[in-house]
């Protein structure tokens, strides 16, 4: 097999998108099969966390939610964060859990991490319906920024997909990755503006610049509610980081892919 050109590789990945959809729909169908609530379970975790953090940060301690009602603020942090966390933890296991596929059949391996991204998006879309109800309850009308939501989603998915590719391959090399990731995700969540805003001034301002998740989460809030969070240059840097992570992650995945059949 002579080495493929990048365009040939891209064509192969594009050819596998049908398979990624198929695997994602299998995953979603199996996940909620034989449950009474079915896909309603996608709401359970974000709603429960929203209630917990609302109690914590309105009764126990106060945070400045930038003028938004805290439940709306935190829900717009938790749901995109859950999407991110679900993609990463699902991706870390996707190759190792499907070793019978990886060692027996050939297809563009990207289909497996991509299917994790797609199936996480289904849960995300379901959870976002609660947001509409929540905003109606508080009388918040979405602003014109709503049109930019696809851009925010694309940047977040680029980052998550790049990391998903790296994590899926890395976990084949070292099964430690899936455990390190669980710790890392917890730390990362509290280092991002998920349940409280990250200050743009003072000692912690570098957290807002270096961690692309903070500008991304703030961009969700800005675009959907019209409230003002964060600044365009931070989001621009986050977008740049995301694209670099996606490209570098994919190239590394391709390099490692040669030995998947032996590692899985």
């Amino acid at each position: 097999m002579s080495p493929m050109s990048i365009t040939a590789e891209l064509r192969e990945v594009a050819g596998a998108r049908g398979l990624a959809w198929m695997l994602a729909s299998r995953e979603v169908r199996v996940r909620y099969k034989h449950t009474v609530l079915g896909i309603g379970w996608a709401l359970a975790l974000p709603v429960a966390l929203m209630l917990v953090f609302t109690f914590l940060f309105t009764r126990v301690a106060k945070v400045d939610a930038g003028g938004l009602p805290y439940p709306v603020f935190v829900f717009l942090g938790l749901v995109p964060w859950q999407l991110h966390a679900n993609i990463l933890s699902g991706a870390a296991r996707c190759l190792t859990d499907q070793r019978n596929l990886v060692t027996k059949v050939y297809f563009a391996r990207e289909a497996l991490p991509l299917s994790v991204v797609l199936s996480a998006l289904v849960d995300f879309a379901v959870a976002m319906t609660v947001l509409a109800a929540l905003m109606a309850w508080y009388g918040i009308a979405p602003g014109p920024g709503l049109a930019l939501v696809p851009v925010v989603l694309a940047v977040q998915l680029a980052l998550a997909t790049g990391l998903a590719l790296v994590l899926s391959a890395a976990n084949l090399l070292y099964r430690d990755v899936q455990y390190v990731l669980q710790v890392g995700l917890q730390v990362w969540m509290f280092a991002s503006s998920v349940v409280y805003p990250i200050p743009r001034t003072g000692n912690l301002k570098w957290l807002a610049w270096l961690n692309p998740m903070t500008p991304i989460l703030d961009a969700w809030r800005t675009c959907i509610t019209g409230a003002h969070f964060g600044l365009a240059p931070e989001f621009g840097l986050a977008a740049l980081i995301s694209v670099v992570v996606l490209v570098a992650g994919w190239r590394w995945f391709r390099r490692m892919e040669r030995v998947f059949g032996e590692l899985a």
Binding site: M22, R26, R29, K33, L101, V105
Partner: peptide, 21 residues
Amino acid sequence: AGFHPYLSGRENVSINGAILG
């Protein structure tokens, strides 16, 4: 390859077919 025990024969035809290219 990729047959899922809980899915119907019909659903598995689609998934297995996609896996086989």
